[in-house]
Design a binder for these strands. Sequence first.
RNA 1: GUGGGUAUAGCUCAGCUGGUAGAGCGCCGCCUUGUGGUGGCGGAUGUCGCGGGUUCGAGUCCCGUUACUCACCCCA
Length: 449
Amino acid sequence: MANKIAPLGGFPELLPAARVVEREVVASLSRTFELHGFANIETRVVEPLDRLAKGGEIDKEIYVLRRLQAGDGDSDSGLGLHFDLTVPFARYVLEHAGHLEFPFRRFQIQPAWRGERPQEGRYRQFTQADVDIVGVDVLPFHHDVEVMRVMVDALDALPIPPVSFQFNNRKLIQGFYRGLGLADVTAAIRTIDKLDKLPADRVAALLVSDAGATPEQAQRCLELATIRVSDTSFVEQVRKLGVEDDLLEEGLTELAAVVEGCAAGGHRHVTVEANLRIARGLDYYTGTVVEIFMEGYERLKSVGGGGRYDALASDGRTTYPGVGVSFGVSRSLIPLLADGVLSGSRAVPSAVLVAVVDEETRDASTAVADALRARGIPCEVAANAQKFGKQIRYAERRGIPFVWFPGSPGVAGEVKDIRSGEQVAADPATWTPPTEDLRPQVVTEEKKQ
RNA sequence: GUGGGUAUAGCUCAGCUGGUAGAGCGCCGCCUUGUGGUGGCGGAUGUCGCGGGUUCGAGUCCCGUUACUCACCCCA
């Protein structure tokens, strides 16, 4: 038992300095979401299994809750941990519809669980940040632009590598295929989605064999799927393919509006593209779809995504259409922390360590600390009245930038910046550290050098 | 779910065809009797993942097992 504890794969835990980064990212996301008027909610972590079921089947990746004391006859509680935030949100809307104002705008940042084999960027417990807007019976299209724009702003404000929003529109694809005379639209979309893994000619062959396309139709599908631009020029490119369909036109208009709306305003490191091969979630997305990728981390696949659901939730009488997008906080952050792209400036909140001269005068050190805290400066008093060298080292290990040496009656105290070695006389009632030292900061790789 | 890899000090790892365990970093002490980092000297640390087998002898070979890890599958 005295042996080491084995880590549990897929259930990542952060050390304090890394947690500084995660907390700041969550705080920054929340600030942006709130800036756009989205209210925060938190849902329970369990849902009835039948609600988590996918097409009537219980997914094997769902963690089921079971009481230890349950008898052999009892199977389980009928409850499972949620595997995303959309399903709980849909249920929340139905359950609380009478108390909500629609269109309801909310954000939610919570863990979710999936019994997958863990890999880089794929965990069994992970944190996600979702923003959605949901309406009653109808939800005007401009909310698609609005909610996507919120996530663009939110990710643009994060200290992460550049991200790319790749948009598509299901009406556009569906209308194109329909206008083309393709019978099995869903099969065609599913096949086109394999373009990542298979060469174009193999995909074309599959379109013929699996999706009932003629070679000519397959060729057109590929031409559509390879359109990828950062402006609205895709509209002309699609029209040149010579397919006519009302739904296609609607999709083109919508996608153009989303791309234009999200690209507007100028961003630090977010790019926006129309990418006509993005499929995502065949069963429920009905209009706008998006996948988000992070530069240098394409191997993680998407770090976020979402879209429009015409039926996010329904109670049989009322349908609640929704549009939203989610960002994988754990999926993107943990690899960035592991690679040292992001780190926390220190593992403790303390900006100052107040040294203790000897145990008889510990009260004097505590008084200094109280004076600093009264002005909002996080600090701690040294654990032991060791030699000052040891106390300085204690601070250094923890990344605490300042050590305060209390004075004695008639002698002023002094504060030392242990990075520069500079030491000055100071009064705990007025001294203030530089703003950037007041709290632990997120340090990016460039800033480190 | 399928296949591969790995498991030795706090961390990263070495240990050739079997002979009773090593390095670097870190940690502790002293040089340095109240101001750290650099330098010098010294020191501590391991049921070599677990169980079994072969052998005079196993970290090393064999079998099993567990965990971790990578890839595939899947991915709302």
